[in-house]
Design a protein around this nucleic acid. Structure first.
Lengths: 229, 229
DNA sequence: TAGATTGTTAATCGATTAACAATC
DNA sequence: TAGATTGTTAATCGATTAACAATC
């Protein structure tokens, strides 16, 4: 019975409704995009998957497989049109149009992020920063006002940001996260070295350079351990 | 015959010479460590893999498998001694002793990193910062001198750092990387949104919050795409 | 048409998870 | 001893890569 149901779904050729795109694919998409932008700027019109492999180190079949999640992009025997592919990847990632972003935490890291030009280049606009420190509230850094964290819900009703960058100390991260979600945020880029608990409709990505450094630290001695034997 | 060889090796208890540890395992190790430190601080003495799963979301079998790459750590029927495990993981990652680190790029991001307290807490000490901008050279930020990039090789002969943080603009990243390697650096934490070409004995990890934001941006609309169907 | 390169299927590889004998 | 939990083997799952028919 359950088997029959399964079979029917197959027969109808339903393309697996929740055709989940693997995260590694999404990550590579940004690599392709970066490379395509450079390529377009230098006037190249067409590119093959083999050339992508040469330049990015990502396997040509991998590249084609990655794209196949989103449709057809190339011409057999010819390759891919650089500017078209560039545009389509940007659209897939939804970074073709300006995205309002909220920053919480106007400390060292937060201020550095406000001044990071790459954000605007990729259409991510930090519209407001929030902090709970009275010494920071009211400041105007990099053309961005620092607002009282208590005004978060209030202000985001107007701003309508759905992505937030969280650059607060670890001990404040979870409680701020809850405020963010209440204020309508659905995606959080978390710089605090802590696991955030969020409901299933909210997505989180963590940036942890301490973790990255620890991995490097291990790898550094890995080679030596081998020769020590 | 080959089988016998294998058996012999097993009998000698050699733990598989080039037993490459998966990167995901190394990444999780830092998560465990963080959690264990908190746990130790709050006086807990013993922990089971089931409890680790409850707290970190990482599967209990995963945890045990991860540790198994490095030996035996727990007592069946009892669990793991928190402080002992903490110490051993720190030692595996080589973050039990101070590691000298070089920072290149004393811009916004670089300065923010110099002031990041987490680094010292995890025994990563930025010993010197380098920049090529005359306006930055000679500055003293967060107790760290900013030196002329041209003195990199020279100074690192004394400093002996093998890990570097690269926080320079994308267009300078590759050439600085080559100077770093020449100066004896073997591990690079790269903040520039570019693929660094390095020889096989050098390891690189990339931190790319633009990529992370792009993934979030995709995931944000993923849910909606489903309901649109 | 012949050569090149795509999109996709099948094979491989590696990582995650379940299951369980060993053991505290 | 009985109950709990480990370390490890086997099963599952998913991602990467190779191979190739389709097609420009």
């Amino acid at each position: 019975m359950a088997n029959l149901e399964t079979y029917r779904a197959d027969a109808r050729n339903v393309p697996a409704p929740s055709n989940k795109v693997p995260i590694p694919t999404l990550e590579r998409l940004t690599t392709y995009l970066r490379y395509l932008i450079d390529l377009g700027a230098s006037g190249v019109e067409t590119i093959s998957s083999a050339e992508i492999e040469r330049q990015t180190g990502i396997n040509a079949a991998q590249f084609r497989k990655d794209l196949s999640h989103f449709g057809e992009f190339g011409k057999p025997g010819v390759g891919y049109n650089v500017t078209e592919l560039e545009g389509r990847i940007a659209r897939i990632l939804q970074i073709h149009k300006v995205q309002p972003i909220i920053l919480v935490g106007a400390g060292n890291l937060g201020s550095a992020l406000m001044g990071y030009p790459g954000l605007k280049e990729h259409k991510f606009h930090i519209v407001t920063a929030f902090d709970s420190d009275p010494n920071k509230i009211g400041k105007h850094l990099w053309n961005i006002d620092v607002q009282d964290l208590r005004r978060l819900g209030d202000l985001n009703q107007v701003l309508g940001a759905r992505i937030a960058i969280l650059a607060v100390p670890a001990n404040a991260a979870q409680s701020v996260t809850e405020k963010l979600i209440e204020a309508g945020i659905r995606a959080i880029l978390n710089f605090a070295p802590i696991l955030l608990r969020v409901p299933p409709h909210v997505v989180v990505r963590n940036v942890s350079f301490l973790q990255e450094l620890a991995v490097l630290s291990y790898q550094l001695t890995e080679g030596e351990r081998k020769t020590e034997k």
